[in-house]
Design a binder for these strands. Structure first.
Lengths: 345, 345
DNA sequence: ATGAAAGCGCTAACAT
DNA sequence: ATGTTAGCGCTTTCAT
C-alpha cells in the first residue's frame, strides 16, 4: 500500500493524476512554448503537491549532457586550489551546473583514475591542474579524443594543446626581482619548484631575465629547483647563507618555502629586511600574519577559478568544437610587505 | 562515415563486434558468474580496443543508485572544511564513489538550493554542515522524508535527528580553560561564535563549566558571542582590556579571532604570554607560524571527514533504513604553544 | 552459459 | 496545444 507512495514521484505520476500525457508534463516543467498556461499551472501545482523533483540523471542520459563539470587538482586543502575551486563553483552555480571534484595528491596514477572516473560520469567538461608526479599525457589526449572539452589551469602541460588559464608567472617573477633590486638588494637567489612543470619554469625564466638584464653575477648554486615546503626552504637557505658568497635576498616559488628561508635567516642571527630580503608566492593567509610580514606574489586564485569556468560557459558549452585553443592569463599582483622594506641609508 | 566511429562506444558496439548479446557484454564487464571466462576475455579485449568506458549515468538510472555523495559546506576555502572534505574524498575514492560539493557561503537560501540540487542529482547520501544564517530545518526533513541518508557534521542542527559527527567541543573548551588556569591566569574571557549554532554553544558551556568549577568570578561582559573574524576579536579584546576589570586570558572559538585578540594585546603594550594568555580553535596553519605561536584546539578536521564518510559506507550503504541515529564524536587535541607558556615565578 | 526483452525517468520527434 | 512513441545505455529478470 505504501509501495506506490514511497517511490520517488515521476512525471508519470503527475500525468496520471492530471490525466494528461507525460510529454505534456515534461514540456510544462521545462516551460516549453508548446503547452498552454493552464496546463503549466496545473502541472506545477501537482508537482509541488506530490513533492516531485526533476531527475537530472534520467534527463542527462536522454539529452546526452550532464550539466556537470569535473575538476582534478592535486590537493583541495591548499589556499590556491580551494580558492580556485571556490571561484569555479560560484560560476557553475550561476549556470545551474555542478562540480565533481577529484584530488590526485600529486600521484600520476590517481590523476589517470580521476580522468577515467569523470569520463565514466559523463561530465560535460574536465578542468585539470596536473600533479607533480605526472609525466605522460595520454590521459589528457584521451579526453580530447572523446571531444570532452578540456581546460588546464595553473599547472598546465604545454605539450597538450587545449584551453589554458595561467598566471603571468614569468612577468611576476621578473617584477619581484626588480622590486628586490629597487630596494637595494644585490645578490638574489631563486628557490623554485619542479622543473618539469611549466609554471615553475616560467618563474625561473622571469628571474633569469631580470638577472641578465641587470648584469647580475650569480653563483651557479643561486638557482635551486624542486623546492616544495618550509623544510626545503630552510635547508637550502641555510646552506646558501653559509656559503662563501651568501645571497642578500631570496625569491621563492611558495610562501611556505619563503617561511623556511626566513627561519634560516633568523637562525643565522640576521635580520629581515635589513640584512636579507624575501619574497614568496601565493599570498597564503599566514603571509600577512607573520613578523615581519611577507612580501608575496598573489596569484589571484579565485579569479583564476572564475576565468577557467567562464571559458566553458562562454566558449565551449553549446558550441561546435573548434580547433582554436583559448589561453587566458591572469595577472599576478605583488603584495608589498615588510620582508622587503629595506631601510636605504 | 565518421558518424558511427565518433559516438561514444556502448555495450552494443562490443556486442555487435563480437556477435553476442548486449546482456552478455554487461555481465562480462561486471564479472558475473553466469558468463564464461572465454567471453569475459573476449569482451574485455574488445572493450579496450574500442576504448569503451562504462556509462555510470545509464547504470545509475537503471540501478537506482549513483555512487555519488553530496557534501554541503559553508566555505570550501577554509582550513577546517577543506581538510574535512579531503578526508571524505579519500574514503569515497577507496569505495569508488564520487563527491559533489556545494558551498553555501553562509546563506540559508543557497543551502536550500544545494539540497535541491543534490536530490535532483540522485546522490546516495547527503553530508551537511550548516550555514550560520540557517534557521529552519524543513530542507533537512525533506531529505529524510525521501529516505536519502543524511549525515550532519560539525555545525549540526540538534532538532533534526539523523547521523552526526561532531567534536567534543564542550570538553575541549573545558580543558582549554583548565590549561589557562594551570598556567596561572586568573580571569579568562570567552569570545565565542553564533549562539544558534550547537557547536558554539557547547564550547561556551565547557568554558562556563570550568569557570563554575573553579569558583571564578567573571564580569558579565567576559562572555561574548557572534564573533567571526580577526576584526571582531581585535575590537572586543580592546574593549575588554580597557575595562575596569581587564581579563588576563582569552579563549576564542577560532584562531582568527585569537589573532585579533593578540593584536589588541600588543597594541595595548602588553606581552603574550607574560601578561595575557590566548588560546584559539582550529589549528589553522598560521597558528604555528606567528610569534608567539598560538596555543590552539585542533579539531582533527581530516579525521572528522573520514569518520563522516565512513558512517555512510559502514552503516548506511546497502542497508535497510533503520531508525537509530549514529553519533560519532571526534576528540579535539589541544596544541600547546607559546601564547600560554606563562613564566611562573 | 547465453540471449531476448523490458524498463529506469526523461525528452524529442512526430503525429494529430 | 496535446498525445504517441521511441530511445538515451545500462541491468536484470526470465527463457532457452
Amino acid at each position: 500500500m505504501t509501495s506506490k507512495k514511497d517511490r520517488r514521484p515521476t512525471i508519470y505520476d503527475i500525468a496520471q493524476a492530471l490525466n494528461i500525457a507525460p510529454s505534456s508534463v515534461s514540456k510544462a516543467l521545462n516551460d516549453s512554448s508548446s503547452v498552454s498556461d493552464k496546463v503549466k499551472v496545473l502541472v506545477r501545482n501537482k508537482a509541488q503537491e506530490l513533492n516531485y523533483r526533476h531527475n537530472s540523471q534520467a534527463a542527462s542520459l536522454r539529452k546526452g549532457t550532464s550539466r556537470t563539470i569535473g575538476v582534478i587538482v592535486p590537493k583541495i586543502n591548499s589556499a590556491f586550489f580551494s580558492n580556485a575551486i571556490s571561484g569555479m563553483e560560484e560560476v557553475c552555480f550561476n549556470h545551474s551546473h555542478q562540480l565533481i571534484i577529484c584530488q590526485t595528491e600529486e600521484s600520476y596514477a590517481k590523476e589517470k583514475q580521476a580522468v577515467d572516473t569523470l569520463i565514466t560520469n559523463n561530465v560535460d567538461c574536465i578542468i585539470i591542474s596536473q600533479s607533480i608526479e605526472t609525466k605522460g599525457d595520454s590521459h589528457l589526449r584521451e579526453v580530447i579524443k572523446r571531444h570532452t572539452p578540456l581546460i588546464q589551469f595553473d599547472r598546465v602541460n604545454q605539450s597538450v594543446s587545449c584551453h589554458q588559464v595561467v598566471n603571468d608567472n614569468k612577468t611576476a617573477a621578473y617584477h619581484a626581482v626588480k622590486e628586490l633590486l629597487n630596494q637595494g638588494y644585490k645578490s638574489i637567489a631563486f628557490l623554485g619548484g619542479s622543473l618539469n612543470m611549466h609554471v615553475y619554469n616560467e618563474r625561473r625564466e622571469g628571474y633569469l631575465q631580470a638577472v641578465k638584464e641587470n648584469g647580475m653575477m650569480i653563483p651557479y648554486d643561486y638557482v635551486v629547483a624542486d623546492m616544495h615546503n618550509e623544510q626545503n626552504g630552510y635547508e637550502v637557505a641555510t646552506t646558501l647563507l653559509n656559503s662563501s658568497l651568501p645571497p642578500d635576498a631570496f625569491l621563492t616559488s611558495s610562501d611556505y618555502i619563503a617561511f623556511g628561508v626566513m627561519k634560516a635567516v633568523f637562525a643565522k642571527g640576521l635580520s629581515i629586511p635589513d640584512d636579507v630580503g624575501v619574497i614568496g608566492f601565493a599570498n597564503e593567509p599566514f603571509s600577512s600574519m607573520i613578523v615581519p610580514s611577507l612580501t608575496t606574489v598573489d596569484q589571484n586564485s579565485r579569479a583564476m577559478g572564475i576565468e577557467t569556468a567562464n571559458i566553458y560557459f562562454t566558449n565551449l558549452m553549446d558550441k561546435q568544437q573548434s580547433s582554436i585553443s583559448i589561453t587566458k592569463t591572469v595577472p599576478c599582483t605583488i603584495i608589498y610587505r615588510d620582508s622587503t622594506r629595506k631601510r636605504i641609508d
